[in-house]
Structure formats: structure tokens, C-alpha cells
Write a protein that binds this DNA or RNA. Structure first.
Lengths: 183, 183, 183, 183
DNA sequence: CATGAATGAGTGTTCATTCAT
DNA sequence: TATGAATGAACACTCATTCAT
């Protein structure tokens, strides 16, 4: 994965991948028929672990919905946006997604759709408790995540041009979202 | 550009680029020394036209700041997020930015930093008129744009997995942002 | 010619040749059908002027045959071995002769065979006058020139490795040849 | 080597070299990084074996110095001038020496300088025994070799125009040199 | 006559993939 | 099961040659 992240799919050489895995070029082909399949398998493996944490934490929360949403978002920043490896997977999906549609579908199903559901539930919980107003965001929870996703991309792409302070960004994001949803 | 967008930098063949331009391989090398330079030149050219429109429209606006921000955002969706070519440039920068750092710097300077300034000014205008509250978003205007950027990426990456309705998304975005900033 | 000498036939670019001639690439093709023909013509032109001087001087000499041979050889060193351009033509013939057999034939006919005849005549003159002994060199006059030709090649090839002092070399050569032929 | 000799450095195609070696294009690049390096390695390999024979024979000679010089020169004709491969290496060095200066230096050090030393020693031996006179050739032994080198070049370059009889040439050469050095 | 933009055949080099060991 | 030498398709880039201006 490290090699794919650094070099992209086309730029990654099978020999280098093999070396990084402390084995020989030929050995790779015992386990994967082509570089494409290797890529798919490797990326898939790195996608799986992601969602589990986020889901677990969504249960059994007893505070207000604002607190819950705030917490979820901060967690997302800490574990996803702030994690270079996970950001990199996103970049790889953006870059190579065209060639590997099943991969993006998988990522959507395993990660994004679950995050969407979670946000949706929290918003619903907030509306039910009178804490949040009715808003189009209920149906399109992705808007709520938007700035975080943008931050992840920013870190990988424009950070050289203009450093993004993740802590302050997260605070501004949460501030805006909570005020935006508040009843 | 079309070829680079479809195939990425590594995947794009110089012959194909030449054919698309209705000329021969060798002709490309009359104008660009290497594929890298061709790429830079082509991408740079596609970046330039973008910002002008957005900036012009920021002047001479007489309505409320909410209306102004709403309009700006909707414009952004119409002209940027909804425009496949411009989205594609973003994807290319995300994918190949590593290799071409001057390109992302250029993009930041020409496009993003200007958008940031514009948003900042509108928020300030709103605060000055008592329409918007003081909020961390003043200093980090990018959060305001976040969902739109995410939508652009979504369109290129996850639209197959789950179609994003740009109109409704934009509405949800504007709704949340305006409520989030309101005094 | 300069370009062919510096770069060899394959390495010489037609554009560069044209530039050196202060004209444009296309112009070359008004006068020569191919690079090969250009090469032949150019080399041929540089061959012609050479022999005339040497021949003229062979006539009307009134000294001893030793003096005459000595003079001829020193002339050869001065005008041929010591002249970078003429040396270079030799190198080019050695390098590219395979490809251009008519060229080497021409060179042989115009330059070498005449030099051979001249040497032969001097040796005969010396034998007739009792100055030189009968020797196989009469029939193979080229042995007499040998060291000079070698010096020419040395200058172009091994001079970096070990500088050859042309004056002393010529003296040693003449000394050996005159003693070798003396009756 | 065969391909380089036939086509020169620029004209030799890596594919052809590979084919001649009964392997595939790519295989060449397992052992040599570039065509240049391949060339250097190949030529170097062909240079090495040469000098050993000549040197060995220089020891333990009991005849006169004339006989010794005669023998050495005839050997040189038999093993060097008469050997197409060794001649070819010389031609290649003359042709491509410019590009590969280390190669000509190597050739000088391994072959020529050793031949020079040998000739010098024989001349000294002859002078010491009163067989040879003092002459500038002592300091510039290369003049003694000159005709042989010329013959080698002739064979490769002008033999089509005028066949050179190596046996007679060698005899004329030895005859002239021995008489030229004799006391 | 002169030009130089356009062409595309040709070549060095890379790298995914195979396979004998 | 693991290796890495061998392969050759593929591609960036060059340059002799053409031809419209």
C-alpha cells in the first residue's frame, strides 16, 4: 500500500512492492494474478478496518445531540482526516477510481454509506428531541461531512501552498454545522 | 487535457494526445520538450479562465449578505462543481499534485486563495451589517466552501455508487451555511 | 564538414549542418537528396584540394634524393599530419568508409596513390643515383609513409593519453627512413 | 562486439546485439544500464587478452637484437595486424574514441604503452651490443611500429581500393627498420 | 529559392509477466 | 513455495525528410 500511495497505480513497480514486503518479484505473482488484482486486494484490505471504530462509538451515547454530533465529527477528524494513511486511500480512490469501479463501490458501501446513516440518525435524534430544526440536511447528511472531506483533500494537495490547521478547522466546522442545524 | 483527464498523467500516451489534437506525435515535441512540460502547460491553461468570472460577480452587489453568499455559492455550483472540466482539473491536481507542486501552488494562488478572500469579505460584510454572527468561519472561510468541494469530488468518484443530486445538495449546503452564520 | 567531423555521420544532425552553413534545414534538401549524398559531396570536396600542393612540389627538385625525401616527408607532416582538418578526413574515412566505399576509393585514387607514386619515384631516383640501395620499399612505398599516417591517427585518438611531439616524431621518422634506404 | 564493429556505436541496434547474443532486448538491460555502458564493457573485454602474448614472448630471447626485433614485428603482424578482430577494435577506438575517452586511455595503457616499452628495450639491447646505432627512435619507439599500424588501418579502409599484401608489407617494413637502426 | 512546421518511422529503455530452478 | 533471470510489448523521444507558404 505504501508504494501505491507514494507512486500511484501506474508509477508503482511490482519489484518495489515486493521488496517492501521483503519478498521477491515472482512471489507476488503466486498470490495475485496481475498488478490490478494486487492493487484491488491491497486497497480493499486497507479500507475494511476503518469504519468499525466509527460505528461502535455511535451507540450508547447519552449526551445531547449537539454533543454527539460534535464528538462524532471530532472523532472523524482525529481518526480519518488526521490519519495520513486513510487520507491517502481517499486520494487513491479519487485518482484511480475510474479504473477500479468496484473498489469505489466497496468504499462507498463500507465507509461512506455507514457514515451517512450515522449522521442521519444523529440529526433525526436531534430533531426528535427538539434540539435541531427540520432541514434539507436530514436527507442529505453528506453536507454535514463536507468540510471534513475537503480538509482531508486539502492536507494532501494544497498543504504546501497553504498549511491547514486541522484543530481550528475542525472547530470552525463543528461551530458552523451545529449552528446551522440548531432549532 | 481530455486525454490527461481520462487516463491520468502516466496513462496518457503522447500519440493519443497528438491524435486528439489532430496532429502527429512529433509535432507535440515542437512545442513541448517533454510530456511533463506538456502536462504543466495544458493544466495551467485550463486553470486560468476559471477565477475571472467569480471575481467579477463579487462586485457591485446590492442585496443582503445572505443573498450574496447564497448567490455566490450557487454560482460556484453552477460554474465549478457542475462543470465536468473544472472538476476534472481538481481531480488531476489531487492525483498528480505530488509530481507537479508548482501546479498546485499556481492553482491555489489563482483560484482558491481568491475564493477564500471573497468568502471572507462577504462574511465580514454580513457581520458588519449585523446579519451574521462572529464565528470562527471568518478566519477559516474554507469551511464554508467545504461541502461544495466535496460535491465536486463526489461527482467524479462516487457518483456511480450513489448519484448525487447537485441541485438539492447545493440547497442543503446553502441552507446549512446561512443558518450556521446567521446572527 | 565541421559537424560531420565532430559528430560522425550518424551523430551529425542535418539541422546543425544547416545552421553552421547559415541556412535552414529545408534548404539543404534543395541541393542534396539525402544526408548520405550530402556527406559524400562534402567529404569529396574536402579531399580534392589536398593533393595538388604535394604534387607540384615534387617536380623540379635539384638536391639529393635524401634531401628530397626528407623534404617531402616534412611537408607531409606540416600540411597533412599537422593539419587537423585533413587528419579528420582520414578519421572519417576510417570510421565511415564501410558505408561509403566510393569515397574511400576516391580518396585512394586522388591522394594516396599519388603519394605512393611520388615516393616510388624518389626512391627510384635515389637508387639510380646510387644514393639508395635496392629494397622492398621500392615496390611498397607505403612503408615509408607509415609512421606519418600513424602519427596522424595518434593525434586524433591517443593524444589525450600520451601527447605526441610532432616535430620530434617527424625527425625520428625521417632519420630512420633515410638510414633504412641508404645504400 | 561483432555488431558494434559492423555498424559503429550509433548504428548498432540493441535488439540486434541481443539477437546476436541469442537473447532478448530486455535481457541486455539486466546486465548493462545503457548502450554506452554495454559498449564500454564489450570493448574493454576485447582489449584485455591482446597484450599478454606479446609480452610473454619478449622474455628469454637469446638471438641478436635484429632477429629479436624482426621476430617481434612479424609476431605483431601475425597476431595483431592480421587479426580482423583486433584491427576492428582499433578502428572502433579511432571512430568512437572521442565519446569514450576512458576507453582509449585504457587501450593506451594496456596495449600501446607496453608495446612501446618493449620496442624501446630491444633498441637499447641492440645499441648496448653495438648492433644498432644511436638514433632518435630510441626515444620515440613508435616510429618503428608506425608502418604496422598503418597496415592495420589500410586493411580496414583501403583494401577494397588497393589490396595490401600483408606478408610483403611486413617484410618491407622489417627490412627498412632493421637497416634504419643498424649501426 | 528559402523556410521551418509537420510527419512518422525508428530506437533506447522500462516493466509487467512468465517460468525454469 | 520462493526466486529472479528472461522476455517482449509498450512508450517517450529523436530526427531525416517533405511540403505548403
Amino acid at each position: 500500500m505504501a508504494v501505491f500511495i507514494e507512486q500511484g497505480f501506474a508509477g508503482a513497480k511490482v519489484v518495489d512492492i515486493a521488496k517492501r514486503a521483503k519478498s521477491a518479484k515472482g512471489t507476488v505473482y503466486l498470490y495475485f494474478e496481475t498488478k490490478e488484482q494486487l492493487f484491488e486486494a491491497v486497497v480493499r484490505q486497507y479500507i475494511q478496518p476503518t469504519h468499525v471504530d466509527m460505528r461502535a462509538m455511535a451507540k450508547n451515547f447519552s449526551g445531547s445531540s449537539s454533543e454527539m454530533l460534535s464528538m462524532i465529527l471530532h472523532r472523524f477528524y482525529a481518526e480519518f482526516v488526521g490519519n495520513e494513511q486513510r487520507r491517502s486511500i481517499m486520494r487513491i480512490l479519487i485518482s484511480e477510481g475510474h479504473r477500479f469501479p468496484e473498489l469505489t463501490e466497496y468504499y462507498y458501501k463500507e465507509i461512506i454509506s455507514k457514515a451517512e446513516k450515522m449522521i442521519k440518525q444523529i440529526i433525526k435524534r436531534g430533531i426528535d428531541s427538539g434540539e435541531f430544526r427540520e432541514s434539507p440536511a436530514q436527507k442529505i447528511p453528506t453536507v454535514v461531512m463536507g468540510p471534513a472531506v475537503m480538509a482531508a483533500i486539502w492536507k494532501m494537495t494544497f498543504d504546501n501552498a497553504s498549511k491547514l490547521n486541522l484543530k481550528k478547522f475542525a472547530e470552525a466546522h463543528v461551530d458552523m454545522v451545529l449552528n446551522g442545524l440548531r432549532a
